[in-house]
Design a protein around this nucleic acid. Sequence first.
DNA 1: GTCGTTTTCGACTATATGGTCGAAAACGAC
DNA 2: GTCGTTTTCGACCATATAGTCGAAAACGAC
Lengths: 203, 203
Amino acid sequence: MKLLNAARTVFAEKGLDLARIDEITERADVGKGTFYYHFSSKEDVIGELIAGLLGELVTAIEERCAGIVNLRDLLDTMIGVHIEFFSNRWEDFVLYFQGRAELTLQDSYEGLETPFLEYLGHIEDLLAPVIGHQLPRPALRRLACAVAGFVSGYYSFAVISPQDEDIDETFRSLRGAMASSLARFITEATASGALATGEGARV
Amino acid sequence: MKLLNAARTVFAEKGLDLARIDEITERADVGKGTFYYHFSSKEDVIGELIAGLLGELVTAIEERCAGIVNLRDLLDTMIGVHIEFFSNRWEDFVLYFQGRAELTLQDSYEGLETPFLEYLGHIEDLLAPVIGHQLPRPALRRLACAVAGFVSGYYSFAVISPQDEDIDETFRSLRGAMASSLARFITEATASGALATGEGARV
DNA sequence: GTCGTTTTCGACTATATGGTCGAAAACGAC
DNA sequence: GTCGTTTTCGACCATATAGTCGAAAACGAC
């Protein structure tokens, strides 16, 4: 929809908080009333946008990762899906990242947390059967966090490097090394009992 | 200073954009005029806060990493410094993360980029002599991005996991595995020529 | 204790912006 | 073409908040 697209653009440009409804409606070339006819508030659009985005991402992950039984392959594919997904969708990456940043705050936008937790949940579900050991939920969650965090962490930092314009290309070239190292990371962390021990920390 | 501390707290609570000057001055228990006597604007405090934070972090990194010649040890120490630094400094981590999120936007706060680039620069300078191969600057930058991104990426995601309250503890337990895998990541990426090749992508 | 300087104060201004609302257009069934 | 429903419109309201400013307090040198 015209409004959602305009919103996506403006949010990616100004950030969730500083984006103005007026600017969204202007870009979408509709009256302000139209906006409030379709959405109940600013929070509402943000929620819809992020939920849609993560929904798509999850679908892509599920589709491409189904049936993979090898940890390294799974991670490689997962990373690959992220890269391909965000490739040429810069606005969506910013949205994803901004949404995540909101979550570190005390009062983030209503309903932002749920889609992110679902997203993590799906990653966990894919990881679980492929990892040798039987892991408790919280440990799995930590691994899912590591996977998602590593990918977006690198991506987000690479971004502020001005001389390096073709991030996707660069990222793709690092993908293999990253998948291997993540797989080893998981294998080692699991085997060493670091995760099982962390268990006692507070689960 | 009272004002800086109040500002830090409020920014970490509400986010850079939504934090109100009024709330900062109230918390600091000073008049509004006092704020504007010390800082020229909201941007000004943000800049000062982030620059101070990253300066401290860089100092800590330099101190602890000086003289380490082994890649794995260097990474382990680097990660360790980050963990220790942000341990019990939740507000500062949020600030760091929010600041980074701002950088993905078109018009981020004036002067936020510089301290982050300096921070990356220091990481690069430590990494460079320890890596076997001679790498071009942009490739080094990518590695620095990976290190910083991985650490904060995991940290930030782990945060939204509600059942897992002792993040620092958990993180500490994963530290070893992470350092090894990052070291391998770098070694492999360098050896495989992925970074050198990425060179052609746009350097 | 006086006087110049530094620092503090909070009422006030200017403005920006989320959200409302009643009227009008567009649509579509008949 | 008429009438009820859906959708659009943008002027308008209420409010929040960054930043100003003139006056007063605090300080400190002598």
